[in-house]
Structures are given as structure tokens and as C-alpha cells.
Simulated assay, not measured.
Amino acid sequence: MTRTEEFLTELDEGMLQYFREFADELVGRFGMSRAEAVARINAAYEGADIEPYPDLMCHEEPDYWAYGLYFLPKDGRSPHSGSVGDLTEWETRPAPPRDSHVWTLSE
């Protein structure tokens, strides 16, 4: 398990790839920069105890977690691909403050 300059949690190679796919989903689905995607992931998972691949979170595809980091929960639930139609119904979660240490990549 190692900690990279990118993510603020220790990940083995398999989970590092999973987290990078997670960031790719945020970039591809929601049009944010890679720096913002990584900052959102860091804000949510910094210091989390992530097991070697396949960690329990791997029972869902990275896009499932991406929706949860981009949208605020509504009525006790979070959207995920395949479960939502009109995404305009959902309020977006603000990005972490730009001066936060979770921004490990430059724009």
C-alpha cells in the first residue's frame, strides 16, 4: 500500500487504478477538470481505510461513486447511473474550497 501525490489515502496498485477510473468518471460524465475530480475524491476518502483490491467498495462500478460525489443526496438517496432520468432534478455538491489541501493536482 502506498500513498501517491494524487490521492490522500493509501492504495495498492489495484485500488489506485480503481480510484483513477473513479476520477475519469467524474471528468467524463460531469465535465470537471481532473484536478477537481481528484479533490472531490480526496475530500471524501482522505485517510480512509481502503483494503487491497478488490476493496468492498469495488462491488459497485466507479460511476456509482462518482454520482454520489457530484450530487447531493435527495430524499435519503443518491443518484447513480441507471437509476436516474433527468439529472436536472438533482442539486450538485459544491467542489472543495480551492485553498483546501485536497487539491493535489494543478488545473
Rank of each mutant, 00 (worst) to 15 (best):
V27Y: 00
H59A: 13
E60M: 15
L16G: 08
I50W: 04
A23R: 03
E21H: 10
I50N: 06
M32W: 06
I41G: 01
E60D: 13
S33G: 08
Q17N: 15
D63C: 08
E46C: 11
M57I: 15
A43C: 06
A37V: 02
I41K: 01
G47T: 07
Y64F: 15
S33I: 02
E21P: 00
G47R: 08
A66S: 05
M32D: 06
E21V: 03
D49W: 12
F30I: 09
S33Q: 08
A48P: 04
R20M: 06
F30S: 11
E36I: 04
W65F: 07
A44M: 10
R20P: 02
E25F: 00
P54D: 10
N42I: 03
A66N: 01
Y18R: 08
P62R: 01
H59P: 09
R40G: 00
Y70C: 09
R40N: 03
L16W: 05
E36Q: 09
E36Y: 02
N42R: 01
R20T: 06
N42V: 02
G68F: 05
G31Y: 05
A43I: 03
A39Y: 01
P52M: 10
A48V: 12
G68S: 13
A37K: 00
Y18M: 08
L69C: 05
A39D: 02
A48E: 12
D63V: 08
A44R: 12
C58H: 10
A48F: 13
M32I: 15
F30A: 10
P62M: 05
L26A: 03
E21L: 09
R29F: 02
M32F: 08
L16T: 12
G31L: 10
G31T: 04
A66W: 00
G28T: 13
A37I: 00
L16P: 03
E46S: 15
R40E: 03
A48Y: 15
Y53N: 14
D55Y: 07
V38I: 05
Y70L: 08
M57N: 12
L16S: 07
Q17L: 15
G28C: 12
L16E: 11
S33T: 14
G31N: 10
E36G: 06
A37M: 02
A23L: 02
Y53C: 14
P52A: 12
F30L: 13
I41Q: 02
A48S: 15
I41A: 01
F22P: 01
G28I: 08
L69N: 04
H59S: 13
G28L: 12
P52V: 13
F22D: 02
Y53R: 13
F22V: 04
G68L: 12
D49G: 11
A48C: 13
Y45H: 10
G68K: 15
P52G: 11
